[in-house]
C-alpha cells in the first residue's frame, strides 16, 4: 500500500473515530452558558477531528498514487512484530510475575531476537539489567512496581 492508500485509510479511521467520539460526547451534559458542562469541549474537539480527518482524506485523494511508504518487509517485518509482541507480553504479564522476573525474561528474549549471542551470556546480561533496574528503581527510588505472585 502506498502513501496515498495510507492517507485514505488514516482519514477513514479518523472519521470513524470522530463519529464514535461525537456520539459519546453528545451524551455528556452540555450545561448552560454560565455553567458549561463536561460535554462542551469534547463536542468541539470531535468536530475538529472530523474536519481534520476530511483534510487527510482530501490530501490523500490528491496525492500521486506512486508515493511509497517505507514499511519493513519479510524478515524485517517479523522482527518488528516480534519485538512488539514481546513488549505486549511483558507488560501484560508484569502484574503477575513482577518487575524482576518479568524484566529478566523480556530482556532475555529481546537480546536473543536482536543478536546471535549464546544463551548463557544472554542470561547474564538480562539478569544484570533486571537486577540493576530493581535495585535502582524499586529499592533506591521506591517506585512501587507490581510485586507479582513471588513477592518481588
Amino acid at each position: 500500500m502506498g502513501k496515498r492508500g495510507g492517507y485514505l485509510v488514516t482519514g477513514a479511521i479518523g472519521a470513524a473515530l470522530s463519529a464514535g467520539y461525537l456520539a459519546l460526547a453528545a451524551r455528556l451534559p452540555l450545561g448552560a452558558m454560565d455553567q458549561p458542562g463536561a460535554g462542551v469541549f469534547p463536542v468541539v474537539v470531535g468536530v475538529l477531528v472530523l474536519l481534520s480527518s476530511i483534510a487527510v482524506l482530501w490530501e490523500g485523494w490528491r496525492m500521486p498514487a506512486e508515493d511509497a511508504v517505507a514499511m519493513p518487509a519479510g524478515v524485517d517485518a517479523v522482527r518488528v512484530l516480534a519485538l512488539l509482541g514481546l513488549l505486549v507480553g511483558y507488560v501484560l504479564l508484569l502484574p503477575w510475575i513482577g518487575q524482576l522476573v518479568g524484566s529478566f525474561l523480556f530482556c532475555l528474549l529481546v537480546i536473543r531476537l536482536l543478536s546471535r549471542t549464546p544463551w548463557p551470556w544472554i542470561a547474564l546480561q538480562a539478569a544484570a539489567i533486571a537486577v540493576t533496574a530493581q535495585l535502582v528503581f524499586v529499592r533506591l527510588l521506591q517506585v512501587q512496581m507490581p510485586r507479582g505472585i513471588l513477592g518481588f
Binding site: 518487575q99 523480556f106 529481546v110 537480546i111 528503581f137 512496581m145
Partner: peptide, 15 residues
Amino acid sequence: PRHIFLPIILVIAVI
C-alpha cells in the same frame, strides 16, 4: 550495542 541498549531503554520506559 543495540541489542543491549534497546531492552534497557524499554525496561526503563515501562518502569
